[in-house]
Amino acid sequence: MSKPFDKRIQEMNEMYKLPINTTPTLLPDPADKLKKFKATLIDEVNEIDEIIEGIKNGQPDIDTKVAIADLLGDIIVYCRSEALKYGLPLEDVLKIIMDSNESKLGADGKPIYDENGKFLKGPNYWKPEPKIEALLLKHKED
Rank of each mutant, 00 (worst) to 15 (best):
M1Q: 03
M1R: 03
S2Q: 03
K3W: 06
P4S: 00
F5E: 03
F5S: 00
K7M: 03
Q10C: 01
Q10R: 10
Q10W: 02
N13D: 05
N13A: 10
N13G: 07
Y16W: 08
K17P: 01
K17Q: 07
P19C: 04
I20H: 04
I20W: 02
T22N: 14
T22H: 14
P24Q: 03
L26G: 00
P28M: 15
P28D: 14
D29H: 12
D29K: 11
D29P: 03
P30K: 10
A39V: 05
T40S: 11
L41N: 13
L41H: 13
L41V: 13
I42D: 09
E44L: 14
V45I: 14
N46E: 12
N46G: 10
N46D: 12
N46P: 06
I48V: 14
I48D: 08
D49G: 08
D49T: 08
E50Y: 08
I52E: 09
E53K: 02
G54R: 04
I55A: 10
I55H: 05
G58A: 00
I62G: 02
D63H: 04
K65S: 07
V66L: 13
A67Q: 07
A69G: 06
D70Q: 12
L71M: 12
L72W: 05
I75T: 08
V77Y: 07
Y78A: 08
Y78T: 10
Y78D: 05
C79K: 06
C79V: 13
S81G: 12
E82W: 14
K85R: 08
Y86H: 12
Y86S: 05
Y86V: 00
G87L: 04
G87K: 03
G87I: 02
G87M: 05
L88Q: 04
P89E: 05
P89L: 09
L90G: 02
D92A: 15
D92W: 05
V93S: 12
V93A: 13
L94E: 15
K95S: 14
I96L: 15
M98P: 01
D99S: 15
D99M: 12
S100C: 11
N101Y: 02
N101R: 12
E102G: 14
S103G: 10
K104D: 05
K104S: 06
L105S: 10
L105V: 13
G106Y: 01
G106D: 09
A107L: 09
D108I: 05
G109N: 03
G109F: 02
K110M: 09
K110D: 08
P111E: 13
P111L: 09
I112Y: 03
I112T: 02
D114T: 01
D114S: 03
D114L: 01
N116S: 05
G117F: 02
G117R: 01
G117D: 00
F119P: 01
G122Y: 06
G122I: 02
Y125P: 08
Y125L: 01
W126I: 15
W126D: 12
W126G: 09
K127G: 04
P128Y: 13
P128K: 07
P128C: 14
E129K: 11
I132W: 06
E133C: 02
L135I: 11
L136C: 07
K138Q: 07
K140A: 09
K140S: 04
E141D: 13
